[in-house]
Design a protein around this nucleic acid. Structure first.
Lengths: 208, 208
DNA sequence: TAAAACTTTGCATAGCCTGCAACGTTGCGC
DNA sequence: GCGCAACGTTGCAGGCTATGCAAAGTTTTA
């Protein structure tokens, strides 16, 4: 038989690759959660995943990449989704909608994401690399917003809205992981975007 | 005589340190602007600054640090300034005010900053490290906002406002460097903060 | 079953970064 | 001035990250 019936429609090779990748990510997250980023070597991660350290670098361009995960929020993909949303809808709202599938995706992988975020908050050097992975991704989103709004390349809006919504999304992720499941990511993202769209008004002071 | 009259009130030792630091930064920016981050070694930077490469690491914790500059926006300092601004003033506006001295400072160093930003935009891996240097800085600012607004530690507002205003400030810097002096940084920061406080409304479509 | 395509691995190497100890310079009190 | 203490610089050794290359080994395809 040429390929599998159960599980997935992938060949053995492709399946093994996924296994290896997963094993490396799991090992990396587990070890770094235990000891901190500085006290774990690529060698050890590879050891734990039972591959050579050279193989590690066949999968990830750097140690950090195994932690942050690759293409968490793919700017190009978001850009495409953004293009499909009618331009009458305010840009912030449109971005929120474009992010919806990503949110769902993350909630599916909940377990891993909680651990990942825990690792990231204890090793904050990595946090910036969480979203807007390559500048390429960011640029794609900026371009999509520019098209939507029809402003020229000198205008600051596309870049501003891209970076600030990215920041908002990141804060939602951080809180999500901090609550560890008490609140859904969707709710937190919605809250952050609502605040942003409202101009970040000061919260009501609790009445003593 | 025990110390100098002209220039500064610093001793020879302190002056030499500044010289070395400046020489290293200049060399780093110049070389990386010419060849790109990957094609410049610490060895070469140190060589150009006429010190040993070991000395380089006495000044900077990493190659990147010599490029991004240290403590561009010191979160602790911003936090202190923030605490001095009456809490009646809306937080975004207060942050804008707290950033004012930083803006002035950067405009003083214009030349170096333009080059720095040019380098950063051509080597975007470094961009995230521009602001919110250590998480410590960010945390200080988050804490200051929390105090101002009187919200509890679970509230998302302080983190949200800190990261988004940081992103806004960064976009202003990027545009500033892109315009290379046509527009003042103050103007661009004001514009970004105004947009943010207005809820990032879509810009008016240019009437064809 | 054999060739083709692909993955893993070891080896060599460049470069980043740190700790340590020796050395040179600066600052300060006498 | 002199000498001591503080501090900055340097070389050296060594660990770790990351990449290129070529030799295996495994999966796929015919």
């Amino acid at each position: 038989m040429s390929h599998e019936s159960a599980g997935s429609a992938l060949g053995r090779r492709e399946r093994k690759k996924r296994q290896t990748r997963d094993a490396l990510i799991d090992a990396a997250l587990r070890l770094v959660a235990e000891r901190g980023l500085e006290n774990v070597t690529v060698e050890e991660i590879s050891e734990a995943a039972d591959v050579s350290s050279r193989t590690f670098f066949n999968y990830f361009g750097s140690k950090d990449e195994a932690i942050t995960g690759d293409h968490v929020v793919d700017g190009v993909e978001i850009g495409e989704r953004l293009a499909a949303i009618p331009p009458e809808i305010p840009t912030i709202h449109a971005i929120r909608l474009a992010l919806a599938p990503t949110v769902v995706q993350m909630q599916t992988d909940q377990e891993r994401w909680f651990l990942r975020m825990q690792v990231l908050t204890s090793n904050p050097d990595l946090l910036p690399r969480l979203l807007t992975r390559s500048a390429e991704a960011e640029r794609a989103m900026v371009a999509a917003v520019a098209v939507r709004t029809g402003v020229g390349p000198d205008h600051g809006y596309p870049l501003l809205v891209t970076t600030t919504t990215g920041a908002a999304y990141r804060t939602a992720m951080i809180r999500w992981a901090a609550y560890a499941g008490t609140v859904s990511l969707t709710e937190l993202v919605d809250e952050a975007f609502a605040d942003l769209a409202a101009g970040l008004p000061d919260p009501a002071r609790p009445q003593a």
